[in-house]
């Protein structure tokens, strides 16, 4: 340590901001290691280990050593219609949550960016769902959806629209019902990110456009949206990933039911790994999920960016 600091001190005259590019001195390593070690051991390592598990027949509670089985897990997966059903549901869920979530959050962010009364209060209230445990969000909405004691069916009865239904156990209604909860739960993060993006909108341009008589929609299209676009792209891409990987909400709401109609891929993989003990097979599912999602996101992002160039 003394060596390191002495060395650093001697170099102080050149100014701190410019150490030789690409190099860390001993002192810096000392600062980095406490975080780097856990990251390597508990994040990067397990990720690589997890990928390698996909090529083995690893199972829980087995005494004989696990063996490499090459692509056998992936071959099995290819013919596993249950998994692809689940995967399809995952995509419907992820798109069904991400798109409305973005549009609703955009509306809210634009409103909160206006000079309205109670804006501060509204901002605080609007991000409350962010602070809630996902399990509680699930419980809360189960109470809302409850066929008898729930407020949703009661409102429907009050409005004379029939008797309502058992939303979370109905074959047709379960997935839309959990999608609504997904939208609700992710609104605050998306809104805050978009509000941050709105700070990038050049106000002078906005005012100039208004002077020239551009309407609200035109101002949004030509001034606000171009400045907001990078943030919008980033947050929708992130939301899509988060939603596709989501677990706790649906676990609490329906636990994948009825009849697998809301069994997201994460729930499927969780059951495969920790109920049936098929670690290798579940890891292969994880790999397929990452691969497909990466490709979809790449196509989405490249498409959006190219669309921007052409305009």
């Amino acid at each position: 340590m003394t060596l390191a600091t002495a060395k650093k001190r001697s170099g102080k005259g050149e100014g701190r901001g410019a150490p030789p590019a690409g190099m860390l001195d001993h002192g810096a390593w000392f600062l980095v290691l406490p975080a780097l070690l856990p990251i390597l051991v508990l994040s990067v390592g397990p990720l690589l280990y997890g990928i390698s598990l996909a090529f083995t027949d690893s199972q829980s509670g087995r005494t004989e050593p696990t063996e490499w089985i090459g692509l056998l897990n992936f071959q099995d997966l290819l013919h596993d219609t249950l998994f692809w059903d689940s995967f399809r549901i995952g995509l419907v869920w992820a798109v069904g949550v991400t798109v409305p979530q973005f549009l609703l959050a955009l509306g809210l962010a634009l409103l909160l960016n206006q000079n309205l009364r109670f804006r501060g209060l509204a901002r605080s209230l609007a991000i409350i769902p962010w602070a809630m445990p996902e399990v509680v969000v699930g419980i809360m909405w189960r109470l809302v959806y409850n066929p008898d004691a729930g407020i949703l069916n009661e409102t429907i009865r009050d409005l004379g629209l029939g008797d309502g239904r058992d939303w979370l156990t109905g074959i047709g209604s379960a997935l839309p019902a959990v999608i609504v909860v997904g939208i609700w739960a992710g609104m605050p993060q998306t809104t805050v990110a978009l509000l941050a993006g709105l700070q990038n909108v050049p106000r002078e341009l906005h005012e100039a456009a208004e002077m020239d008589g551009a309407g609200a929609w035109r101002r949004f299209r030509t001034v606000t949206w171009p400045a907001l676009k990078p943030v919008a792209l980033a947050i929708t891409a992130l939301n899509f990933i988060w939603n596709f990987n989501s677990f706790a909400l649906v676990y609490v709401l329906t636990n994948g039911g009825p009849g697998g109609r809301t069994r997201l891929p994460m729930l499927f993989a969780y059951e495969e790994a920790f109920r049936y003990g098929q670690f290798g097979y579940a890891a292969a599912m994880g790999c397929v999920m990452v691969a497909v999602i990466s490709v979809l996101l790449a196509v989405y992002l490249v498409g959006r960016l190219r669309g921007a160039d052409e305009r």
């Binding site: 690409g22 994040s43 990067v44 990987n245 890891a283 599912m285 790999c287 999920m289």
Partner: peptide, 25 residues
């Protein structure tokens, strides 16, 4: 430095980790 950039990369990529791939190992 390279390490700082790698760490920033990890911060971003870690957001996209599917938990299954991490939780089993």
């Amino acid at each position: 430095t390279l390490l700082a950039r790698a760490a920033t990369g990890w911060v971003v990529v870690s957001q996209a980790f599917p938990f299954v791939l991490v939780i089993i190992p």
